[in-house]
Amino acid sequence: MRIVIASGKGGTGKTTVATGLARSCEGDVQLLDCDVEEPDCHLFLKPNIEGSEAVGIPIPTVDGEKCTGHGECGKICQYNAIVSLGGAPVVFPELCHGCGGCALVCPEEAITEVPRQVGVVEYGHSGHIEFIQGRLRVGEAMSPPVMRAVKKYVREGATTIIDAPPGTSCPVVEAVKHTDFAVLVTEPTPFGLNDLTLAVEMLRKLRIPLGVVINRAGIGDDGVEAYCRSEGISILLRIPYDRRIAVAYSRGETLEVAIPEYREKLAGLATAIAAKVSS
């Protein structure tokens, strides 16, 4: 069962729910941190990192001896990552998406592809949880390849919890694709509601079943509750606003360590999701 924890905006408590849920699930559990721009789950789970692997995308190198300056490479490239200026083309690795078009199209076979590192995947354990995280290199713009590399670690049969980046853009879709259920974490405020509706729209477009967790319940207004009622979205859990939680978070403690009664509530959340997925 693959559960993705997502949210329309950042700072709603996605990581709190993801790590708390992983800790409260028994048996074979994996946690995949796909928020590769800001991977934070490790701060709470403090895993033993046992190994890592570089993530690269293939970029072209041009053999100047073979190149005859046709310029076909520059024409096919949609990203201006290879441009032909009369002589041998110039490659801009940071713009390359690694589609391979230039190498395929070159009539002289002057282009070969070599990997360029854009990030890293680290793996290890935190107690009974198998932990995997991706980390995008600072200044890199291409997170989907790193997320795809993290998601290769998904094992059939395990309970896999995926922490997605916030928002509804392309990288978020990469994280939520091929999951069985999405938990949307939100706050009961006008910002929270606005971003929740966008996230719901995205998940419906992708046909992924979803439920909502309201974090800091009681701080704002009842707009989120009313929206969920009218849209027929189930509210899986309400985590009341509690200064103890904010303080625990700031120290890097997981929810169920800070407030033990949450262990049961989070375990209940896992059971409720499992029931929804199997029905």
Binding site: G74, Y79, N80, A81, V83, L85, F92, L95
Partner: peptide, 15 residues
């Protein structure tokens, strides 16, 4: 209008 690589694109035009 280039989504990415406006500089290389423009250099191509100048060339």
């Amino acid at each position: 209008d280039a989504a990415h690589g406006a500089g290389p694109q423009a250099a191509q035009e100048i060339s």
